[in-house]
């Protein structure tokens, strides 16, 4: 099985879906000849031409809105936002329009669009190139929100997102793009949206997380294994709708749960995960549910010292795991 980077798996998913279905097209800023600022659409312009790989003006509201219109009228757009931070002008179109089209039209209309955006910090992007924005959308039923952690999941979930009859937000951790590599099958496959995945089986404590933090949890779990502490790692993969069954099962398995996100702690998706566990696992818990997250400040700061303070890393996850294991 070929080994490829996270970003190459994303490019491959788009390429295969565009080959499979001529209704699939890509639009966004610099996605054409340049192949995107991170090169996620590299090669697609040469293969599919300017009518299916479309450079747009710098107008996110229009990227979303025009994509929504095309989706309602029979096309399958993949709209790229250059950075998740740039999505804010498009929030009206995504939340007020895309998420409600099926509901408000008595199920007569649908909006099969994928909104892709790189998110997350650790690259000194500072205030407008580092944020986690998923919680903004996770309070909006009607949108599915996918955040893969591995190349395998990225390809399978993006293909599933393109084929999904409803709008899907697909957030890609920009630090993972070239850092994370893994095996990706050459054949056509999809990964079901809404299903979490056990990335490591363990008995003593459970870590539930998503995105790049999955890898930090797995690295920390290796360290704890040397001391005989067995860590169970659940990768949410889809953060809306959450896989409640998998969350409950993972929490009950060890009775000690650590939730990790790079987003600000308060109001983040892990608060909802904690609520699911609290509602369903009261008599199975052996420790209070723990959360490890970014600090509650408006955006990720620039200075290396402060960015490091903000970001999740394997050391922070390891410490939180050890504290929980000792509880």
């Amino acid at each position: 099985m070929p080994v490829m980077s996270y970003i190459n798996a994303i490019t491959l998913a788009m390429k295969e879906e565009m080959e499979r279905d001529e209704k699939v097209f890509v639009l966004g800023e610099d996605v054409g000849k340049k192949g995107g600022v991170f090169k996620a659409t590299a090669g697609l312009y040469d293969q599919f031409g300017e009518n299916r790989v479309i450079d747009t003006p710098l107008a996110e509201s229009a990227i979303a809105g025009v994509g929504i219109g095309a989706a309602m009228y029979g096309m399958k757009p993949i709209a790229e936002f250059q950075f998740a931070d740039f999505i804010m002008p498009a929030v009206n179109q995504i939340i007020s329009e895309a998420s409600r089209i099926r509901y408000r039209s008595n199920n007569d209309w649908s909006c099969p669009i994928v909104f892709r955006a790189p998110f997350g910090g650790g690259v000194h992007g500072a205030l407008y190139h580092s944020q986690s924005v998923e919680a903004v959308f996770a309070n909006q039923p009607g949108l599915k929100i996918v955040i893969p952690s591995t190349p395998y999941d990225a390809k399978g979930l993006l293909k599933a997102a393109v084929r999904d009859p409803d709008p899907v937000m697909f957030f890609e951790h920009k630090r993972a793009y070239r850092l994370i590599k893994g095996e990706v099958p050459e054949d056509d496959y999809t990964v079901e949206i809404g299903k979490a995945d056990v990335k490591r089986e363990g008995e003593d404590i459970t870590v539930i997380t998503y995105g790049l933090a999955v890898h930090f949890a797995l690295q920390a779990a290796e360290r704890l294994a040397e001391d005989g502490i067995s860590v169970h790692v659940l990768d949410l993969r889809t953060i809306y709708p959450l896989d409640k069954e998998a969350i409950i099962e993972a929490a009950k398995k060890t009775g000690k749960v650590l939730l990790v996100t790079e987003d600000n702690k308060e109001g983040s998706i892990i608060g909802e995960v904690a609520a699911i566990i609290a509602e369903n696992c009261l008599f199975d818990l052996d420790a209070p549910i723990q959360r490890l997250a970014g600090p509650d400040v408006p955006a990720m700061p620039y200075a290396p010292t402060m960015e490091k303070f903000f970001m999740i890393n394997p050391d922070k996850v390891e410490k939180a795991m050890r504290d929980l294991a000792e509880f």
């Binding site: 000194h124 500072a126 205030l127 407008y128 700061p301 620039y302 200075a303 290396p304 010292t305 402060m306």
Partner: peptide, 16 residues
Amino acid sequence: FGKETGLGKGKGGHMH
């Protein structure tokens, strides 16, 4: 340079 003596005490960097 991301230093504490900066206009934004290092929070923003060159675009901010």
